[in-house]
């Protein structure tokens, strides 16, 4: 068979060609990969580093780990005090629980409102599904800040809602909603509802309606059909949607800042205050690190169920 092979020169040419191909591949993968490593992963190390430094009245307002002492010695000072502070001061602990509470309750509210909506869209006649879905996504394209601002006008003591209710005669005194936890729940649910509906719709629309007919044929009533057929198959969508709401809400700043009051203490708001108002960068970084750790489990959950939903989709296709 040796007689058929090309000369050594031809072989070298081939190798060069394949190398060129792989160089192309490396560029395609490498450029976005490097960007993400530098601008997304690397910064976490700096958060960790600053969270272990001592605060200082300087620019930037923290001390380096490595510094020269007066007698010319180089010393490395790592300060765990910031984490100790978070643990000792009930302010931070209650902010963590405040965030968890707001995130959990508004995730639940999104699910309660979003599930029937997603289900209705998935069951709508085919030609209506896209427009109905577009209507859900449309608000997402308008400014987040301005949508929250809209609620300020509605929920104010002399806002639209109170004026309306007073005019109806339902209430005598204006309701105090603005600057309470209730206002935060409303705002968060409103802002994050599309993130719940989209994955729910994706799983529910993939559900074969014939399965429900089969269940009905075997004697299941509508409620039973839902509990035994629809709900179990939509669980991946429910979890993906819940995590898409839960994770970002944990660090939400704008909503508690604009709609919330003194009782709605959340991590995101506290981080902002520590950073911009108190200029305590190390404590803000420590808070960020704690938040990151708290969010790892929900993030892994999300990845797991997203990849499962993807696999299901590939099977269906």
């Amino acid at each position: 068979m040796t007689g058929y092979g090309g000369g050594a020169g031809a072989l070298a040419g081939l190798r060069a060609r394949w190398r060129r191909l792989t160089v192309g591949r490396w560029l395609v993968t490498g450029i976005p990969w490097l960007w993400l490593v530098i601008f997304f992963c690397l910064p976490f190390l700096f958060i960790l580093k600053i969270s272990l430094s001592e605060p200082a009245l300087a620019q930037p307002p923290y001390l380096n780990w490595i510094r020269e002492t007066a007698d010319g010695l180089v010393s490395i000072v790592v300060n765990f005090g910031n984490y100790g502070l978070l643990w000792d001061d009930s302010l931070y602990v209650s902010a963590l629980f405040g965030s968890l509470q707001v995130a959990a309750i508004s995730t639940l509210l999104c699910l309660l409102i979003g599930y029937p909506m997603a289900y209705a869209i998935a069951r709508a006649p085919t030609h209506l599904r896209m427009p109905l879905l577009m209507l859900v996504i449309l608000p997402f394209w308008t400014s987040f800040l301005i949508r929250i601002y809209a609620w300020m006008g509605i929920l104010n003591t002399n806002g639209i809602l109170n004026n309306f209710l007073l005019w109806l005669g339902v209430i005598e005194q204006p309701l105090e909603i603005m600057h309470t936890s209730l206002a935060v729940y409303i705002g968060v649910t409103y802002a994050y509802l599309p993130f719940m509906i989209l994955p729910l719709y994706a799983t529910l629309s993939r559900l074969d309606p014939v399965l429900l007919e089969a269940a009905a044929d075997l004697g299941a009533r509508p409620a039973k059909q839902f509990l035994t057929i629809t709900w179990p198959q939509s669980v991946p969508g429910v979890i993906a949607g819940a995590m898409l709401v839960f994770i970002p809400v944990m660090g939400e700043f704008v909503i508690p800042d604009l709609l919330g009051g003194p009782d709605s203490l959340m991590l995101g708001k506290l981080m902002w205050t520590e950073f911009f108002n108190n200029r305590d960068w190390p404590v803000a970084s420590a808070l960020a690190a704690v938040l990151l750790v708290v969010l790892i489990i929900p993030f892994l959950l999300l990845r797991h169920y997203e990849s499962r939903a993807e696999a299901n989709g590939e099977e269906a296709a």
């Binding site: 993968t29 976005p32 990969w33 993400l36 490593v37 530098i38 601008f39 997304f40 992963c41 690397l42 910064p43 976490f44 700096f46 958060i47 580093k49 600053i50 995590m243 898409l244 994770i247 970002p248 944990m250 660090g251 939400e252 700043f253 995101g268 981080m271 902002w272 950073f275 960068w281 803000a284 970084s285 960020a288 938040l291 990151l292 969010l295 993030f299 999300l302 990845r303 997203e306």
Partner: peptide, 23 residues
């Protein structure tokens, strides 16, 4: 890359902002 692309979608903006400033 799959993980690094998925994470910013849900990452609280406040962490992203702080970490990038420090960077």
């Amino acid at each position: 890359m799959g993980i690094m692309v998925a994470a910013p979608l849900v990452m609280p903006e406040i962490i992203l902002g702080l970490s990038l400033l420090l960077l």
